[in-house]
Amino acid sequence: MKYVLNIIQPDGPPPPPERLDPIMRDVYAFMAELEAAGARVWNAGLAPASASTMVRAKPDGEVELADGPYAEGKEHIGGLVVVEAADLDGALAWAGKLSRAITLPIEVRPVAHGG
């Protein structure tokens, strides 16, 4: 099964380099481990949520644009990693490692179809 690991990131500027650098080293090590295990499907780090735009088609077919993000709040998805795992426990184990590396909570969401 495929699972999306959503990285839940607080809005605002990134931490200073002295904090961020060791975190990024750990994240690269995690990605290398994921790749070596053949479990990495796809991954992306996202621009700040303030850079997002809402696009909504109305019933008459006209498309409405608005400043994003969609969800209010102080935290948004800051990046995602799609992993292949035998079952939820496999995905949770990767999510635990990623959370430890990136020091942020991870939402694990199964992929229903596609991929």
């Binding site: 099964m1 699972y3 795992a85 035998a86 079952d87 939820l88 426990d89 995905a91 694990v108 199964p110 229903a112």
Partner: peptide
């Protein structure tokens, strides 16, 4: 069913 919660005894570390 949807999340793939496994049907097995957890591994020793878990």
């Amino acid at each position: 069913r949807d999340a793939g919660i496994p049907y097995r005894v957890p591994e020793p570390p878990e």
